[in-house]
Write a protein that binds this DNA or RNA. Structure first.
Lengths: 219, 219
DNA sequence: GGCCGACTACGGGTTTTCACGTAGGGAGAC
DNA sequence: GTCTCCCTACGTGAAAACCCGTAGTCGGCC
């Protein structure tokens, strides 16, 4: 991580706040990251567990030759960076400017030992994320470009607060790396969905779902 | 599941046995399944958690049009079928004849409440499986056919008891559905790896790793 | 005005699709 | 026991489809 990327690092308790999974409510240091800043890198010590307070985060892995894969996006209220081993197996980067709460891994374990409900929530969130990963494997393993993009838009729609209108925080390149496609193919496919009347694209980061049935049949 | 597929369903305690993750040692009913038998189906109630005592299991998901995806293989000592919700999101099928231990989900939760170490192991195994899923997403998302097959062989080699010689329990079709390729591409690629001198294929289900460096560079 | 992100066009490559050939194992008749 | 038949699994070939990669252009934002 570049020094300039980490904007501030105040220490403060976490507000009652949004509860999206097992890590909500844990105390930790809040750090602000600028767009594209690295939160942690592949291979770094996994001493902390993170939660998005605001903004969007992507988990990436890079192959030796430079190909990049985005494993998941994390929005406000979601946690990430939990590892089975001592080091992170992915990098985490800020898709937009964001605020991240970092909780020491040990603190999480300690609380889990004394609080069964918390321990169960922790497990639940891991299994839920596993189910998400399996779903995404289905997309990567057997869907066409059109199907992948349609699935992606529907997934974002489900996770979006506003129904019918998507404000995508990520670039076309991010979408491509998430779907196992190239940026050109993503562009072409979005155009194709527009021509079919399934969506409308008033600005490149804003997508209106015009015909959800058409989208579903494409996925 | 067909009635003929489930061979026997005796009830017996689990032996001290192989410990491969958090569910080892849990008591449960042992059931034998014939090759290709369904252990549970997509959408079934997830009332049990399963562990492979012998044999190999695959988790599959089918798209409406018949395309099949294998999310993971599970070998002796490994557990599967743990879900965040009330129903299974994949089907589980026997790749070979196998013995499966089924433990009531409630029994797992109850023990987790009273046994912190067990609870931690449970979480650990979920997170470890998540890491495996992420690794597989990398393969599905950005590797070529050659790279996928090479990765697959190396993965199997790591999970195999005998170093250097693989006894693949699964068919070419299973491999294809696991790697997001067609059966023909898998066949051709295996031939290609043989021609390169990376592997040797004495019989179709037996693969000898002849040049591991060559395999690694292909992956 | 310059720069970055996104869209479009076109040629080339990889994988799929479809077709066929081969090998091995089990069932049944003798 | 062994012979044949049949069925499934696996391998190979050629054409087509799909997606990729390069390059060029446009539009918005700093």
């Amino acid at each position: 991580m570049t020094a300039s990327a980490r904007l501030t690092a105040p220490f403060s308790p976490v507000p009652a706040a949004v509860a999206a999974n097992g890590l909500a409510g844990l105390p930790g240091a809040v750090t602000k990251y600028a767009r594209n800043a690295e939160i942690f890198g592949e291979g770094d010590e996994a001493d902390f567990v993170y939660r998005v307070r605001s903004g969007t985060v992507r988990l990436t892995r890079i192959l030796p030759d430079g190909r990049r894969m985005i494993g998941s996006f994390h929005f406000a209220g979601e946690s990430f960076g939990i590892e089975p081993g001592a080091t992170h197996s992915s990098s985490a980067e800020a898709v937009t400017d964001c605020e991240i709460v970092a909780t020491p891994r040990n603190a999480v374990f300690r609380r889990a030992e004394n609080d069964h409900a918390f321990s169960h929530e922790l497990w639940q969130s891991a299994v839920a994320e596993l189910a998400g990963a399996r779903q995404h494997m289905l997309v990567l393993g057997c869907q066409s470009a059109l199907e992948r993009v349609a699935s992606f838009l529907l997934e974002m729609a489900e996770r979006s607060p506003v129904a019918g209108v998507l404000s995508l925080p990520m670039s076309r390149q991010d979408i491509a790396d998430y779907l196992g496609l190239t940026i050109e193919t993503v562009s072409r496919t979005i155009t194709q969905l527009t021509e079919r009347g399934a969506i409308e694209v008033p600005s490149s980061r804003t997508i209106v779902l015009r015909n959800r049935t058409s989208l579903r049949s494409a996925a």
